[in-house]
């Protein structure tokens, strides 16, 4: 028991360190505008969270809800489709032999090293030449690809999908696509959840791409919307409170995603490690 005290202390301090800002956010979002700067930052004053929420959702004809929906569309859609793409690609690289397989894999791997930030401006110029900037697709399409997911899918498929099973499926007359969806993808499921979560977080946090691509307010994801409000605080001081409450609301989807999928996430994190 004794040798667990020190680790617990360290973990406790770490937990506190990460939770205090969220606590501050929760407390701050529950105050009225006047009390926000004048009362104790880490404890509640008059509880006005629901009034603030009402104000947030009503501001500018509910543009915040629209942003939230956009974010879910960008991230949810891109993560689902992107996971499917990554899984198919990784599975093909793991299970089929064809010339150039390693070359393709290496190119994908080097893609992991290129930060999304560095690609935003080139993407903008490319989309400009198709006159497709400032559209839903200009953010959605680039978000689909996920080289790390391909890597993870390949590793996991190698480890978890036995060749014998595929052979058996083929002998039974199953086509390759059917085999993938009905046999392999089930075996790869924990990895797919991990890829989905990684991808979800990556797209949710990808801020620069929408910043560069979008000018139409109704297309903004919630991150960009809150950021632009925050830069206007000097001109419209009432926005400060809305940014706070909005930030609180905007972390809810992420929290839900993690609570629902965390056991897969944990399994998946170790997946590539052993084999």
């Amino acid at each position: 028991m004794r040798n667990r005290i020190l680790p617990m202390l360290i973990m406790g301090a770490g937990t506190l360190y990460f939770l205090v800002p969220i606590w501050w956010l929760l407390v701050g979002a529950s105050k009225t505008r006047g009390q926000f700067s004048s009362t104790e930052p880490l404890w509640f004053a008059d509880f006005a969270l629901f009034d603030n929420l009402g104000e947030l959702f009503a501001y500018r004809e509910g543009v915040f809800l629209r942003w939230l929906a956009n974010s879910l569309a960008y991230t949810g859609g891109a993560a689902l489709l992107g996971t499917l793409l990554a899984a198919m690609c990784g599975y093909a690289l793991a299970k089929y032999r064809f010339p150039g397989r390693e070359a393709i894999f290496n190119v994908v791997l080097s893609g992991v090293l290129v930060p999304a930030t560095a690609l935003a401006l080139p993407l903008f110029l490319i989309f400009s030449s198709f006159e497709a900037t400032n559209t839903f697709w200009s953010v959605f399409l680039p978000s689909l690809v996920n080289p790390f997911g391909v890597y993870l899918a390949r590793i996991y498929a190698t480890a978890s999908v036995p060749d014998e099973l595929l052979e058996a499926a083929r002998l039974d007359g199953s086509g390759e696509i059917r085999t993938f969806f009905q046999v392999s993808s089930k075996l790869m499921f924990p990895a797919l959840v991990t890829i989905f979560l990684f991808h979800f977080v990556a797209v949710w946090n990808n801020f620069l791409l929408p910043l560069i691509m979008l000018g139409e307010e109704r297309l903004f994801p919630v991150t960009l919307g809150l950021y632009s409000w925050n830069t206007q605080v000097n001109q419209a001081p009432e926005l400060r409170m809305l940014v706070l409450v909005g930030a609180l609301v905007s972390i809810v989807p992420l929290v839900i995603a993690f609570l629902l999928l965390q056991r897969f996430w944990r399994n998946g994190l170790g997946a590539g490690a052993v084999k």
Binding site: L211, E216, Y227, S228, T231, Q232
Partner: peptide, 15 residues
């Protein structure tokens, strides 16, 4: 047609 974004130094000038 209005397009919007963060303030100038927050990214719009760069855009």
């Amino acid at each position: 047609k209005v397009q919007t974004g963060p303030n100038g130094n927050g990214g719009t000038y760069q855009n």
